[in-house]
Design a protein around this nucleic acid. Structure first.
Lengths: 252, 252
DNA sequence: GAGTGGTCTAGACCACTGA
DNA sequence: CAGTGGTCTAGACCACTCA
């Protein structure tokens, strides 16, 4: 008789552990409930703590768990649907969900200068903004506006008046189009602090360009928490899904 | 005299290591070049292999490195810009970048049924597709079409004729709108195989809904490799950036 | 100060690739 | 077959939160 080889490629312990924990989260825990600590969990499953942590890390990446140092591991609520790029084109700062937290005029990094089509050593208005949903920070943004886009800007602005004035001048232009790109990144120290996460936390980086007169009038780099956010696009309204993304996928 | 406390919060070794490696990749390595193996690198930096791996994992997450078991670690090319959701609405399968690799009629998972508005035990056409760019797989997709959306579909189709017939019937409808959501996930075993990655690899999951007559006529879940792809949206063409995303961000 | 998650070590063995 | 990255262990100490 032959050997019963159910798994020609035996799955790693942490992968199996992740499946078991994922099912347990669905059936035995409520949103916000706190899990046993990592040392107890590892002992319960008979694995080393590092192996358990590998499973927890994946579940946190998928938005199922939330871990906070000094506190514990809790069951995360479903991801929030965050609207990005509404159907009606509009300038940043015009009736949007962001709040300005700072503004400086400084030389942008080379990649931003390439995006804007400005010279490598040219100073641009740099507005830092924050986005909050349901009382928690979901995104940090740097919005870049070349001086050439806002020629009517008054001189000698106070720091408090700087950002509003730049946005006001920007809104006077006709917005002809915008495009966006989304990619995975890890939070820099400054963004991480603003997002209430540790540096290196996974984030979705949205790079936007705003066009007027065939030129790029402004560009922004928005950093969204990947664990708590689902970015929504399009003209048919935000998704109403209440399940997690992994539930929407199955083997074919 | 006071102590000189340069770092009130000393950064972790792996974080510093990541910065050093990132800089070295820019200045001392070419795209495609192979790095020293992990044991040598760890010894060179005077850290344990696990610590080095933590830095490499982040760099891979950011698309800077590519690691292949049995081969080695290579310097990754810049991420590819992949167009998602073109300006002109169009049905899936109509002049798009996807290739059908399979088709079955099966009961969709509950979350998909909710997306489609079908009953929980209703069978839907499920088309598996693949997307390839520059000779390498970038995305795997499951496209769901309820039978109610394609009433004219002939009966008793051969497996080979199934998917083309469903798409043909779908294209006869008027597409009134579409919306999309993007979130972070980890590759399931089947998708991972199709994407030439290990299970659990980070992916960008794009959920799309296609509307006709105020109803959802079809829905799809597309799984993009997060390490190699930058998803582009909007009407102004794909981005032309040649730098990596982390270069586009700086502290404010 | 007790308890949590975050970092780090120094090993070991396994699965896979390619010569 | 030798060499690579992937998994796993059993510890240790640190940074942080909160009572």
């Amino acid at each position: 008789m032959g050997t019963t080889q159910l798994e020609s490629v035996p799955e790693p312990k942490y992968w199996h552990l992740k499946t078991v924990l994922n099912d347990a989260l669905d059936s035995e825990f409520e949103v916000g409930e706190i899990l046993p600590n990592e040392r107890d969990l590892a002992a319960r499953f008979g694995v080393a703590r590092a192996t358990l942590r590998q499973a927890l890390e994946q579940l946190e990446l998928e938005g199922r768990l939330q871990r906070r140092r000094g506190v514990g591991t809790t069951v995360a609520p479903p991801r929030m649907g965050v609207a990005v790029g509404p159907s009606a084109n509009s300038w940043p700062g015009a009736r949007d969900a962001w709040e300005t937290v700072g503004c400086v005029e400084a030389v942008a990094p080379a990649a931003i200068a390439a995006l804007l089509g400005t010279g490598p050593d040219e100073a641009v208005h740099t507005i830092r903004r924050a986005r909050v949903m349901r009382g928690q920070p979901v995104a940090a943004e740097l919005l870049y506006v070349p001086p050439a886009s806002v020629p009517g800007l008054p001189a000698d602005l106070s720091p408090a008046a700087h950002a509003p004035a730049v946005l006001r001048e920007l809104h006077a232009l006709e917005l002809e189009g915008e495009d966006r790109a989304v990619e995975l990144g890890s939070a820099r120290a400054d963004d991480a602090k603003q997002l209430d996460r540790l540096p290196g936390a996974p984030v979705l980086v949205v790079t936007s360009r705003y066009y007027t007169g065939g030129r790029v009038a402004a560009a922004s780099v928005s950093t969204y928490r990947a664990d708590t956010c689902r970015l929504t696009f399009g003209d048919a309204g935000a998704f109403e899904v209440t399940h997690h993304q992994q539930d929407t996928r199955q083997a074919s």
